[in-house]
């Protein structure tokens, strides 16, 4: 199970990094969102994997580590705030300069305005 989990996190990371390396804002926003999923899963797993051990006192014999959960919970919400900010920034740039290109217009990496 651990192997499966780690592979999943690795794949999520790889795919999101690929998206973040694109030259346009929308794939980058998607990439950031997915990367935050990967990071959350990674952080969450620092409490190790445990099945049916909800950290509710009295509901089971042993409990999984509640601390990473608490940290990841806020991380999810903050991740949302960051994603939202990135999206709005992208829209604003699109409104201001008419392009969703993230490189400077004259840079060789630029793919043209549309």
């Amino acid at each position: 199970m651990e192997t499966l989990y780690a592979v999943t996190v690795g794949v999520l990371t790889a795919c999101s990094v690929f998206l973040i390396l694109r030259g346009r804002s929308f794939p980058i926003v998607i990439g950031i969102t997915m990367l935050s999923y990967a990071v959350n899963l990674f952080l969450f797993s620092s409490g190790r994997l445990a099945i049916d051990q909800l950290p509710l006192i009295g509901k089971s014999e042993t409990y999984t580590d509640p601390l990473p959960q608490a940290l990841v919970l806020t991380a999810i919400v903050i991740g949302f705030a960051m994603t939202a900010y990135a999206i709005i920034l992208a829209v604003r740039v699109r409104g201001e300069i008419g392009s969703d290109e993230v490189n400077e217009p004259n840079h060789p990496d630029s793919e043209g305005s549309r």
């Binding site: 651990e2 192997t3 989990y5 780690a6 592979v7 996190v9 690795g10 794949v11 999520l12 990371t13 790889a14 795919c15 990094v17 990967a38 990674f42 797993s45």
Partner: peptide, 10 residues
């Protein structure tokens, strides 16, 4: 990057 992160996680 994905490989390294996955390895670390494992």
């Amino acid at each position: 990057v994905g490989g390294v992160v996955g390895t670390l996680n494992y």
